[in-house]
Design a protein around this nucleic acid. Sequence first.
DNA 1: CGTCTTCTTGATACGATTCAAGACGGGTGG
DNA 2: CCACCCGTCTTGAATCGTATCAAGAAGACG
Lengths: 243, 243
Amino acid sequence: MDSAIPAPLLAVLDRKEMLTQTVRAALASLPWRTQTVDDGREIIPEGFRPSECCLLFEGMAADMRYLANGDRQLTTLHVPGDFLDLHGLYLKVLDHGVLALTDCQIAAVRHEDLRRAAQEHPAVAEFISTVIARGSAIERMWIVCMGRKDPVRRIGHLVCEICLRLGARRQGEGYRFEFPVTQAELADLAGLSVVHTNRALQELRSTGFVAWQGANVIIRNWSALASFAGFDKTYLASDRGAV
Amino acid sequence: MDSAIPAPLLAVLDRKEMLTQTVRAALASLPWRTQTVDDGREIIPEGFRPSECCLLFEGMAADMRYLANGDRQLTTLHVPGDFLDLHGLYLKVLDHGVLALTDCQIAAVRHEDLRRAAQEHPAVAEFISTVIARGSAIERMWIVCMGRKDPVRRIGHLVCEICLRLGARRQGEGYRFEFPVTQAELADLAGLSVVHTNRALQELRSTGFVAWQGANVIIRNWSALASFAGFDKTYLASDRGAV
DNA sequence: CGTCTTCTTGATACGATTCAAGACGGGTGG
DNA sequence: CCACCCGTCTTGAATCGTATCAAGAAGACG
């Protein structure tokens, strides 16, 4: 099970992060354990005291929290190249669970190994901080969207964000990408009822902003959608350059 | 203006964080610049490219974001001992402004100095990461509250959080603390209209959970309020012990 | 072909926003 | 000291938006 670093992992990281040689080499030298998690399973349970950090390199996942009445809210969406519980290095108890939205491939590294790398290489420590800080910026934007945007704009904004985070490229009629979530999951992401989520989606389709069937999303008119939803990508860019 | 570390700053930090000797000494040796900001002013403007990190050691502040239609949402509340823009060390552009909710005293340290301290002392780097990660956990909880809690519970939850973060102590009839925000600011924190915020407050008062007049808040029945609002303090505790 | 999940639709009730206006209280200037 | 003013808090009524309930349609899967 333990093995050299899986090649797809480095490929995904390279596509997403501007790694310096130092950081890249340090990460590559760590002992990673790979694992598959099925769609719908909890990758990490709420309240867990993790001893590893997990890096998602295939599939999608989301942080999840249940309320006493059975409602739940998804708080963060993870795409390939995201760490699922990097903050677990610093917070003893995980305050949320992590749910696999699709079949997922993850690679895990033990806290002690990652921490040693951070101690030996300040650049690794900076990389970790940067990743956590960027996640925090995304969460702040979600708070803004949930507090002050109507359902259609909220989902529109989410679609813009995912599109960029997935690194979707322009392709004929627009930006195309896979977003394999059910409408129930989308509702739990956006803080809406399923019924209303469905109607918001219909509106996004009928206005021509997006085509969305099943897991296939096409943003037909990026600038119109971004302007409508009030999307500004600044918050996604941790563009201090290479870290 | 530049000076030795102000004594109140260390006092506030010590009350809030479990600093190891190393971290405490490293922070104390940095050159801090202190500054006063008046109630209602922007401490840090949105889109700013900061070259310092600011530590709030007196007053309250909030991260703030305006929308195109003039609405605004406050995303994070800062109490004494909180850094206002620690993530500015790693994110080039600040994705939000910071608003002074009261007259504030802040102490600022230059990025280059703080970064050097983090490079020289891995414990300082861990401290920074821990602070950012804990802020991130609070933001996740806010997403949960905004997505799935009704206004009364949402504000009740916020009150519980502030009470703990301020370190309020039991005092006769309950936990008493100062929360000097207007209802308009509270509305922008909770993602509600002012009118509805007012009615939610009345309900919190009439049920006897809290007494709240002006800036004086008393939580009369902590366990009843916490249970009603679904508050569980786990997410606030970065209790990996000393860092 | 039947079963299950997901998506869609309509009707209804509830809840939140908005608009409008009055009450309260602290601060200022006459 | 009083009158006034301004910001904040409070209240009511009308409108709009969202959740809920219920049920049928469309797919996916065995």
